[in-house]
Design a binder for these strands. Structure first.
Lengths: 215, 215, 215, 215
DNA sequence: AATGAATGAGCCTTCATTCAT
DNA sequence: GATGAATGAAGGCTCATTCAT
């Protein structure tokens, strides 16, 4: 602002700046209510640059989705890969997730909280990235079963557990925002505490009954 | 079209018809992308009626939020109230929740999947209804602790468990949509199976450790 | 302007007013340079009405094309139909044409002077209306041959004559604008004078040679 | 792209390349719809070069008009000049015209098919070049009269004939595009056949009458 | 109770044009 | 001689909202 001379920034850098700004605005307002004007202003450039580099509002949103999905998945895989027991791998993955969201809250909102589907391309990309994350988690869940049990776990059950886990983690994301001091490690531990035993129950096909035995 | 006499419908009925239509459209498109035109058409009336009865797009949305939040809470309370053990009350509450969502998917989407907050009034109303549901669940969670333990449960832990539970239930809502035949009872049972034991762990302040004992 | 109350005009009337204004603007500026803003202002309404009634700039242009092509063709056919000799029919048709253009210069410009092809739909509609007029003229030209000669006239020659005739008439449209007092009747007579004999020459396949016989 | 050394081309050559590209684009799209971007790309250079050499979109268009009007006029004069009888001069001029258009269709489109007048400078230049061509033709037409008759030909009549002739020739340009094999010579001959006699009629002030004598 | 007609404001997008290198 | 980076301005289109009947 104080230096009025037009900044001359190489294209790849500018593109990232624009995507950074877009993620903030898309997260705050949602896809439809977000205006390219606001994104451009936050990025410190004029609107035509956005169109020159990212093609359209849709293209811009897709670029955000792709970049952040990639980042999150990479972080998740890098964390969950090395450990040996499925239990430790899940724990590491969750920690990576909460760490990522703690640092990139807006990215997670953009990736996971788009309620409507503005265009086929966006619908597809959202589906793609969500499926990739689910697949990653399902992989860990399955690995756990196969190790401990035999082959008996039905497809459905692993999926059920995955949805439960991802939903819980997503919701804890809000809890985290309410408790800024809380380190991701503690959240991860508590979540493991809460679901680890139960996971086994479900995957083993146990049927919950009331303590008194009444169904 | 020209021959159908303009329907004369008493105001309260018309209002409900408009809200019904609005919920469908808001759920499908999201608040911003929803157009009053589409809502009026789906309700089978002209636009000025919408404004006459509900005042504005915002007023219309608020009416949707209020009516559906009320419905859901009522259903939840009615189910969770009578039973005696906290465990059974939670189970009944979850069943009521899944039953409600199975029958009113759009309502849940409107209540819980608004990614952005278009106006202070809406923000407030959303917060109010979400808080009410959370409070209901937290109540059950606390009741459980107090019965079994003593007063030792920290505020945070109950809230943590609540967020986990609500997030899981919300996410299972999607799983439910993927498995249309699945009865809400089975979903409820599996979810209880998965979280009931873990809840106790967390509320008792247990610290999860790796199987091998490494923290 | 002096009466500020919003005019309430029934839809069919407004549509014609909008098309009237559009023809003037499209003629003056060409399709691309014409702005919907200017059209709306000339029609004395706001822009959204244009879109409500005619759908888009393209739809508006198509409406202009259809209405004016219809008018011109109707006038042409009504004039050229009744007379008995082809010669008189052609004369009557040309008179109708010049009369139409004298009264609706802008329409002719819109119908015939669009240099570029902005969209497939417009290209198609322009082709359709131009072809219809050409067909009308070609019909008269052919009728003339068949009456006087035998069947020997090649397809190409009738078409050649038609293009010549139409091009001449179109260009005389400009001449007419330069000589405002000139009645359409005189223009028609002079044009008949100029082409009637030659038409026969071409249709009979005569080959022109220099007076001195040098090719 | 990165490896091709930037071409160093002397200014006059580059200018012609740019004008070549511009004519193609202006012909295809019309003045307004043509974009400087597309012209620069087709010319194989960057946009600032266009502005450096031709100053503005308007300047670019004017340069096109001037160059092509000059070319056409030169060809016309060179052809029509030498012959001795007006008849042969007209024939030679028409042949030159059709030959030019056969080879430079885009140029003729740019020169003669601009439906709107974007700026005073362009309006003036277009008028100038059209007038120059008309003057050339009118010259031939007058020469013919003066030779055969005497001074009696009214100004108007020569102009009328000129407009007819030019309009016919322009329209036959489209016919030519529809019949790619047709040599310009045949078109010229047929056009002469069609108008030569009629021209005399008009210039002599004859009044066309119906065969049966009814005016 | 109900609606056809109308609009101000805002958003996505593009284009001619310039600046700094 | 040549270009990548950047923008002011304007145009097409839509939407929430209101007026007159």
């Amino acid at each position: 602002m104080s230096d009025i001379r037009r900044q001359r920034v190489p294209r790849p850098v500018r593109e990232q700046q624009i995507i950074d700004a877009a993620i903030r605005v898309f997260a705050r307002r949602g896809y439809h209510a977000a205006s390219v004007d606001e994104i451009a202003e936050l990025a410190g450039i004029s609107k035509p640059m956005v169109y020159l580099y990212l093609d359209s509002k849709e293209g811009l949103f897709l670029a955000c989705l792709r970049r952040e999905a990639e980042r999150l998945l990479t972080a998740f895989r890098a964390a969950a890969g090395p450990a040996h027991s499925p239990e430790l791998r899940l724990r590491a993955g969750l920690l990576a997730f909460f760490t990522f969201v703690a640092e990139h809250r807006d990215s997670w909102v953009v990736l996971h909280r788009q309620s409507s589907e503005p265009s086929p391309a966006i619908t597809a990309e959202l589906a793609r990235s969500r499926r990739a994350l689910l697949a990653e988690v399902t992989g860990l869940v399955r690995a756990d079963i196969e190790e401990s049990d035999g082959p008996a776990c039905p497809e459905d059950d692993a999926e059920f557990v995955t949805y439960t886990l991802v939903g819980a983690a997503d919701s804890l994301t809000d809890w985290m925002a309410l408790h800024p001091g809380e380190p991701p490690e503690r959240i991860t531990l508590r979540l493991m505490n809460m679901v680890w035993v139960g996971m086994r129950n479900v995957l083993d096909g146990e049927v919950w009954t009331t303590p008194s035995g009444t169904p």
